[in-house]
Design a binder for these strands. Structure first.
Lengths: 338, 338
DNA sequence: TTGTATGCGTTATCAT
DNA sequence: ATGATAACGCATACAA
């Protein structure tokens, strides 16, 4: 049991074979005689040898590590999603390195650059800004396989897995209509000019209303004060104080939904008695909130598995045409719309 | 703008200097003439050169990456903590790679092995099993700098940052006593034989009661059914159904506290009207829960900064004596103990 | 089946 | 201040 760094060469000497035989045993490459293999394995055990990832990566050009870049690891949705991706990648013999972009173009671009620096084999990028797009294009040209989640590349140049934004939001809205809500507000994000996740969920809301002969009232469209729990809470205050007779709220995601409910509660508005609220994502906390949160539940496992599948085939074949998938979903009815 | 891999050599040729000069410019090592530096920087920009981390790491023996191994990235506490550590490490020019151990010894040991494989410069390890200890010891001997969070190494052989478990739980309990609670239950984790986080928080509860002349009633000690939201919820059911006249609950952490409140609510027990509940950690969701959760709020920034500081000095000086720190805390009073 | 030579891209050392 | 050379540890290509 030697200390410090033991190299393949040390193992080879110990086993009385050449370095290549050790390498072959480790990588299970060519056929190695049972005796040689046994001696090598024994030498590895005995020496406590650990393969040097840097050297292997330098030589082979592959690291066995895939990056997962998310806006914030502390966000319940991305935290849960990261767990699933980590588990799925491990099943395929890959390791996930979690990056944090801060949901800004700069961070997303940096994650891409970082990925190349770190010799990642690919990057699963949860995109939230279209601004990062140009640098992405540049990057793929330089050969980093990328799978995009969330925001869509309008040009369709990347493999992409998206949430069922429109259909999910439409189903959520329909759920409220079916429950008899007459004045259904929507809480969405900032700029609705570009086709972002916000826009698509908002469009789902509109479509659902129009399909049922209800004219969407622009006054019932609330832009969340900021994409934080606090911003959602104060938006809840605004809804409560609006005097618009709101009796249902479609929130753009669960964090916002819970924040809004909290804000309503600050104003003495009870959910679901006075107002019904439905979210989007089905984060783990949703079922344990009080009231438990009705929500659009995309198939997270499916999404994670698809993202991993896509990045692996992209690594395999960089020139294949990009593929595009949308996760299936279900509406989960809980107390907040009871 | 060449495609594919541009090496330092390419940059050097482009700038009309040697590779070493490029290296020196990039690493800001020795004095380089302003003209040479300018030419090199221009060549880097023009070529889109990215340093090859594998090669650098192989040569220098350092990767600039520190591992952060946590039980689950999806856990709100660890997610939040990871965010802080990432930010702090970046300030020092280091990159964080988040690992997930699954809170099992096997995973924790694996994270350590993985860290060496991946040529991480150090590992901040949130330990939850004492079983991982032996392999840790072995590892440090082999030279991987480690800072341990959470579970304490009884032998005190590692740098360590812990939460104010005893003092925090004691203060939480005292808070309930001060509010007039007479039958204060505690919800804690499994095995109380070893000195784990559970044990220490439980001890804090006991001490606080005894200090105020209250004999801790063993019947009021509830072992959480499992360390999940669902386990906490069913523990809430048990407390509600116990007929023990519980009027206050000290929960071992916020996730458990919220789960318990949810379980109580399932049984029609209102918090804080019928029973007061206090948690531990002050996770981001705590302030937005309904009722908002009173809790022990350790200084998370402080903890993150300390962990990074410790790992950096450990990397700097592997032989320095281990240091031990406990985070300061405050009791945050919210609705759940109003 | 196994071994030898070579080079991946960078940096430490030494020389100029 | 800058350059030449070697070496980090592994795997590819080829030879034996």
């Amino acid at each position: 049991m030697k200390r410090g760094k033991i190299t393949m060469n040390d193992v080879a000497q110990l086993a009385g074979v050449s370095t290549m035989t050790v390498s072959n045993v480790i990588n299970d490459r060519v056929r190695v005689s049972p005796e040689a293999r046994e001696r090598v394995l024994a030498a590895i055990r005995e020496s406590g040898y650990q393969i040097n990832a840097a050297a292997r990566s330098l030589r082979s050009g592959r690291s066995g590590v895939i990056g997962l870049a998310v806006p914030q690891v502390g966000n319940p949705y991305f935290g849960m999603f990261a767990e699933l991706v980590i588990a799925e990648a491990r099943r395929h013999g890959y390791h996930i390195a979690v990056e944090q972009t801060g949901a800004v173009a700069l961070g997303e671009t940096a994650a891409v650059a970082q990925s190349r620096r770190l010799q990642l084999d690919g990057l699963i990028l949860s995109l939230s800004t279209a601004e990062a797009e140009s640098s992405l294009l540049q990057t793929t040209e330089q050969g980093l396989p990328i799978v995009v989640l969330g925001e869509q590349d309008p040009a369709g140049r990347f493999d992409h897995v998206s949430a069922p934004d429109e259909a999910g939001a439409a189903a959520a809205t329909a759920h409220l209509v079916d429950l008899g809500c007459k004045r259904i507000a929507v809480v969405t994000g900032g700029n609705l000019d570009r086709l972002t996740m916000f826009t698509r969920r908002y469009n789902g809301y509109r479509t659902a209303l129009e399909d049922r002969g209800i004219r969407p009232d622009p006054k019932l469209r609330f832009i969340v004060d900021s994409l934080t729990r606090e911003g959602a809470r104060s938006t809840g205050h605004r809804i409560a104080d609006s005097g618009l007779g709101v009796d249902g709220v479609v929130a753009l995601n669960d964090i916002v939904a819970m924040g809004v409910i909290r804000g309503l509660r600050d104003r003495g508005v009870a959910v679901p008695d006075d107002m019904r609220v439905i979210g989007f994502d089905d984060v783990p906390a949703a079922a344990y909130f009080i009231p438990s949160l009705s929500t659009v539940s995309p198939d997270h496992e499916w999404k994670a598995a698809k993202a991993v599948e896509l990045i692996l085939s992209r690594i395999e074949d960089p020139l294949a045409p990009p593929r595009e998938y949308t996760a299936p979903f279900a509406i989960v009815r809980r107390e907040s719309t009871a």
